[in-house]
Nucleic acid binder design. Structure first.
Lengths: 356, 356
DNA sequence: CAACGAGGTGTAAACGTTTCCAGTCCGGCG
DNA sequence: CGCCGGACTGGAAACGTTTACACCTCGTTG
């Protein structure tokens, strides 16, 4: 009933050719028209499909790029994976996704697993591995990082231009008239960069930075951290280093009867799928995950065009929705959005500063 | 600098043993303690790692289960993938994810690609392929479906107990006093099942079904379809076959100045990540994606325990949030939630009816 | 004391490809 | 007519494993 799969040998016999000729016909080598025709007919008759495992063994390549990412649930990571698939598709290659749930040990195992499968390259999203451990695990497989969390190593990386995004957010708030702006920060590397950028951008705007509290990037952390921030009566705006913390902040504000944006303006970071559905729709810095994934895939396939500049910065955009407005003290409050009106969006793309 | 990877031969030479012994040591065969020790030392010294491609070629198995799914962006699919990974992990296996973006042709290619890589099993999420095409593409690889979209075939499948979910939703609305309930339907197979279940559940509740409009499962479709439904002045509640359509409905209602839940109750389906963040937080039927993924993975690894019942129904739960209340005509409107108060959730798990 | 079995080991044949190399055939040129 | 070279072909050696089989060495048992 269920016969073994036909091999290239079966095709050769059926077509009256040698396996070498069949292989050439399959891979676009020089083969006479007659032979090619007989072989194609035989393939059709037998239902032959190439065995990529055997092929991989002899060629040493697999047509696979391994992708190690924290999880599949986060929309941002999913978008990055999508971007990677975009460009791999163009090259006739495929992605193999492995999740590490932010555990360095799982990350190491994931890399070794992928290497055992002979992946032709590796895209690591948010990698925390030390450079030495990384090199040990990955051997000579080319690597590209996306938003690497650990210290820089020699592999090329794609990073969001966090500073530009933060600057856009702070400028937006400052322009609206906010003077005391708080910051909900995250603990990972990008959180620290955003925090530093926040302080710098405030200085640029001629403002003292308001209270800065760590919310660990999560809803719960944001909610807890928000409590601290909301105790400061002078704070009229909060810039959050992630949308998830912004949600927590929104909840905390609601619980205290603080109305957004009338009493408090809130800016998030990431523009997750649902940021636009929040109450009110969230003004936030959009992280172009798909583009970042694309860039990383190109990097891993072609290598960095310029070995001297191994970090490629991608520009974010500020998406202005309904969670920001002028502060109350600034005269009559701007008319708050009608309760359920989907906000019109305004997208602000900062000019990209050339990397130093 | 970058030497070729050591092979089992190198280990054998270094340890003064034969490759057969090394292989046995690696795979837990009978080997003397002395030899095992020498081999392990050699492996450490050389940094040897097994080549799974070569291994796969001779064993005929890959330790991989192929997963074909519409996309990675939808949180529901991502949860299913996570569930699959859960049980594969327990078996020391791994998933290879390929997206088909709902195109049957891409689905076929995905399956053939995975088969060329010798996957040991296939989990197909929302497959639309005809049974014949499917068999042709998959050959003898074991298959398990999740929420198959095409007509049944002989492969075991995991399905949501759509009817139970719909019944819970309708009962919830009827109990609140709603008499004329509309339905935003979807066009895929599960949409049709939900629609039929809606009619049946309404009958069970002693009610005429209200208007039923196709919204194609998307936000835009939901918004368009909502316009039709909202024209009926007697409709006090709408049951949507997906959360995405519920979002569209919410927007349309807002635009018309219809307040939810005071003027209109809305129930969604799926409980996507952000359903709780909507304005107001959405009452919805939760689809336990991760469980479904787990069940499917078990099915593909162990085969169906009972070949006679190839469809495994998973029970959904109704999550009651703030988008549903008693209709206005029912005396003074129930006090609507305070504007931003995160709704307390009430979860209703329907008793699972034994499959017929 | 012979025979046997248990434990351990090595040789070699697969697995299904790609690819190097050495042909064979034929037409055209000197 | 002899050669050369181009177009095409097939044999065979890899690639790095697993595993069937044969063998060897002891200690134990009849």
């Amino acid at each position: 009933m269920t016969r073994p799969r036909p091999t290239i040998h079966d095709v050769a016999r059926e077509a009256g050719a040698s396996i070498a000729t069949v292989s050439r016909a399959l891979n676009g080598g020089v083969v006479s028209a007659a032979a090619r025709e007989r072989i194609e007919a035989a393939i059709g008759r037998l239902g032959y499909r190439r065995n990529d495992v055997a092929r991989g063994l002899v060629t040493g390549r697999s047509g696979l790029v391994g992708v190690v990412l924290p999880d599949l649930i986060g929309p941002l990571y999913a978008h990055m994976a999508r971007g990677i698939e975009d460009v791999l598709d163009e090259h006739g290659m495929h992605a193999m996704l492995v999740t590490d749930h932010l555990e360095p040990d799982a990350e190491r195992r994931a890399i070794e697993l992928l290497r055992a499968r002979q992946v032709d390259g590796l895209v690591l999203i948010g990698s925390r591995l030390q450079p030495a451990d990384l090199r040990a695990a990955a051997g000579s497989v080319p690597i590209a990082h996306v938003q690497r969390d650990g210290p820089d190593d020699e592999a090329p990386q794609v990073r969001l231009d966090d500073a530009a995004g933060v600057r856009a957010a702070v400028e937006h708030l400052a322009a609206a008239g906010h003077r005391r702006i708080a910051h909900l920060a995250g603990t990972r590397r990008d959180g620290i960069e955003r925090r530093e950028a926040f302080v710098a951008a405030m200085a640029e705007a001629g403002l003292e930075p308001g209270p800065i509290v760590d919310g660990g990037f999560t809803e719960e952390g944001g909610e807890a951290a928000a409590a601290v921030v909301l105790d400061d009566p002078d704070v009229t705006a909060v810039f959050c280093a992630s949308d998830r913390m912004a949600v927590g902040l929104l909840h905390a504000a609601q619980r205290r009867g603080i109305t957004v944006p009338d009493d408090l303006s809130v800016v998030g970071f990431d523009d997750l799928t649902w940021a636009r559905y929040l109450c009110p729709p969230l003004t936030t810095v959009r992280q172009p995950g798909r583009e970042m994934g694309r860039a990383a895939a190109r990097l891993v396939l072609d290598g960095p065009f310029d070995a001297a500049v191994p970090v490629l910065r991608i520009a974010p955009t500020l998406v202005v929705r309904a969670s920001t407005a002028a502060p109350r003290s600034h005269g009559p409050a701007a008319p708050s959005q009608r309760r359920h009106e989907p906000a019109t969006e305004e997208v602000i793309a900062p000019e990209i500063p050339p990397p130093p």
